[in-house]
Design a protein around this nucleic acid. Structure first.
Length: 580
RNA sequence: GGCCCCGUAGCUCAACGGAUAGAGCGUCCCCCUCCUAAGGGGAAGGUUGCAGGUUCAAGUCCUGCCGGGGUCACCA
């Protein structure tokens, strides 16, 4: 249903015919031939670069190829114009019926319009959030959560089989700190004065954990040495923290398919097996690293460690998998975890990391390349900071945790829909400003409002028509005579919605869900512009005296609404029916 | 110092290697009370940080600089 892909097929077909007729050499590589919307509408509906791409391999001037191509494309009933322009572009104009047919396609498919088979059912694993289970999610996690979830939606829409996964970092020292912090809250619950020493987690969110511990253990753990309770509390507290994180994610509308535990990798031989696999490939050795140049740590001393030869796969230095005392570094379970994902049969892996983890990209890719024989690509998206503001002023206060603004703070303040949309209004690797006041503003500056308002207006038209006694259900609108949608403004709007399937594919190919948000904003903008024209030209209003004319126009509005709703669904944002 | 990301209009940001680099805000000018309304139309505004290179074609790819941010074994 991607019109651009369909026309590209026609172009390829015409090129094949030219080859068959001797106008072009046989066996040309057509991979670079593209059909895309021109920047300037005056250049027509679609443009192809075929002649320019093929000029050199075919040994012919671009214009010769373009003219031959134009002549053959004119045989296609969908194409009413083919002009050679510029350095060799072939600009195509399509008959209105093609664009009018888009209304039918959209109404027939509903919000599934734009679905693609691009992913060919391949399995992709999207790992995101993966926050330490030591406290509530904070704003820093929200953007990653939204980007990951929207990306997962997008890839599913584009034909991949998607698994959303959360890697629980419950194997390191930070969960010991959690356990000790919880122990102090437990003492507090027992009526003693808690000693929240430096280095422990001070947040109030551990108070309920202390109370739960008292309910379970009574006073039996008081005055017991750490060795007695540490493992037990670690287990208990991380379970509660994880539940809290799940609830937080739930409030944001994010549901993971799989939670993988780092701790569960220990003692099962998985880490050993992953390292053994690398060792077998000659990628593990005992060695000493050079200190980093230019910035030598104060306490640097050469140590013999077990190293992974990640430089074989493009990393800058080899990375330790064992500390000098022989225990695993954090990197070792990470390797094992990614090996585990490879072994589970994923065709593609995606990790969503905070930008502060940028230093781990190369080593992680090296590990996956080594363990999958280069067969499984790993794409890592780094998520830049979110800076909070309120009324233009930096905002750092937290209601709950004291030191940081939590996910709950944000969602409670502005709602999950607004949060999600705004988080997608920037490309992932650019910092984002989030102003609690601005995101709720009802104005054109606010993209969430602007898109929602377009949808509300569309619903308003439908309501209005229904009140006037007109049948405007999708079946009726589908059967309307769309050939009356011939005004340039109507055709322009149709061309915009027709770009949706193509946009889905581009966004999915690049793993960039923000493109969907930008597209929806553009579509909404076009729709509002069209709406406003109706003020001056009553013939462009949706509701007309003539019922069948109205139904065609309302079908157009409905088509725009369906695409907006489909796009919002990918972002995980609930469409608003009516502005309040 | 090494590595990674960013640098595009006064500001905030877009742009699958495609044509004359686009939006919003702000500025300036004009219009308006109109199906749903929190406005509408138009104008000015650019050497895409700098210098090379690849390409029919570079904001986009490569190299080197400049500026900002992040990160740098034995923490996750």
């Amino acid at each position: 249903m991607n019109l651009f892909a369909e026309v590209r097929e026609a172009v390829v077909d015409a090129l094949d015919r030219m080859a068959a007729e001797g106008a072009l050499p046989h066996g040309l590589d057509l991979a670079a031939v593209a059909v895309e919307p021109p920047r300037d509408p005056a250049h027509g509906d679609m443009a192809t670069n075929a002649a320019m791409v093929l000029a050199k391999p075919a040994g012919q001037p671009p214009r010769t190829i373009a003219e031959g191509l134009a002549q053959r494309l004119m045989d296609d009933p969908r194409i009413e114009g083919a002009d050679v322009a510029g350095p060799g572009f072939l600009n195509l104009r399509l008959v209105p019926a093609v664009w009018q047919g888009v209304v039918r396609d959209i109404l027939a498919e509903g919000t599934g319009y734009g679905r693609s088979g691009l992913g060919r059912g391949e399995k992709v694993n999207v790992e995101f959030v993966s926050a330490n289970p030591t406290g509530p999610m904070h704003v820093g996690h929200v953007r990653g959560a939204v980007v990951g979830d929207a990306l997962a939606n997008l890839l599913a829409f584009a034909g991949w089989k998607v698994t959303r996964e959360y890697y629980i970092n419950d194997g390191g020292a930070q969960v010991d700190v959690l356990a000790r912090s919880a122990y102090e809250r437990y003492r507090e619950a027992c009526g003693l004065e808690p000693e929240i020493r430096e280095g422990l987690y001070p947040g109030d969110y551990l108070i309920p954990v202390g109370e739960a511990l008292k309910a379970k253990y009574g006073t039996s753990l008081l005055d017991q040495p750490e060795g007695v309770w540490l493992a037990e509390l670690r287990e208990f507290a991380t379970a509660m923290m994880l539940q809290m994180i799940r609830d937080d994610l739930d409030a944001l509308g994010v549901r993971m398919d799989v939670y993988s535990s780092e701790k569960a990798l220990y003692g099962t031989g998985q880490i050993e097996a992953a390292i053994a696999e690398l060792r077998e490939k000659g990628l593990i050795y005992e060695g000493t690293l050079e200190p980093p140049k230019g910035k030598e740590p104060e306490d640097w001393e050469p140590r013999v460690q077990t190293l992974f030869k990640s430089t074989e796969y493009g990393d800058d230095v080899d990375r330790p998998v064992k500390k000098s005392d022989g225990s695993w570094t954090y990197f070792a379970p990470d390797i094992a975890y990614h090996y585990n994902k490879v072994k589970r049969g994923f065709d593609q892996l995606i990790d969503i990391f905070g930008a502060d983890h940028g230093g781990y990209v190369k080593r992680m890719k090296a590990a996956v390349a080594a363990l999958s024989q280069g067969r499984v690509p790993l794409d890592i998206k780094l998520i830049q900071l979110v800076k909070l503001y309120k009324g233009g002023q930096p905002f750092k206060m937290s209601k709950r945790a004291g030191t940081f603004v939590t996910l709950r703070d944000v969602v409670d303040e502005v709602g999950a829909d607004v949060t999600r949309f705004i988080m997608l209004t920037r490309k992932n690797d650019v910092a984002l400003d989030f102003d609690f006041d601005k995101v709720l503003e009802q104005s054109k500056d606010n993209p969430v409002f602007y898109v929602q308002y377009a949808n509300a207006r569309i619903n308003s038209v439908l309501r209005k028509a229904r009140e006037a006694g007109m049948a405007v259900d999708d079946t009726t609108l589908l059967a309307a005579d769309h050939s009356t949608l011939s005004h340039p403004a109507e055709l322009a709007l149709l061309k915009k919605v027709a770009e949706w399937p193509r946009l889905v594919e581009i966004a999915a190919r690049n793993n960039e869900p923000h493109r969907v948000a930008f597209y929806l904003y553009e579509l909404a903008s076009d729709f509002h512009g069209f709406w406003n024209r109706g003020n001056d030209e009553s013939s462009l209003r949706f509701v007309q005296e003539d019922i069948s004319l109205s139904q065609a126009k309302i079908a157009l509005a409905r088509a725009v609404g369906v695409v907006i709703c489909g796009g919002l669904a990918i972002l995980g944002v609930t469409p608003v029916e009516e502005m309040r």
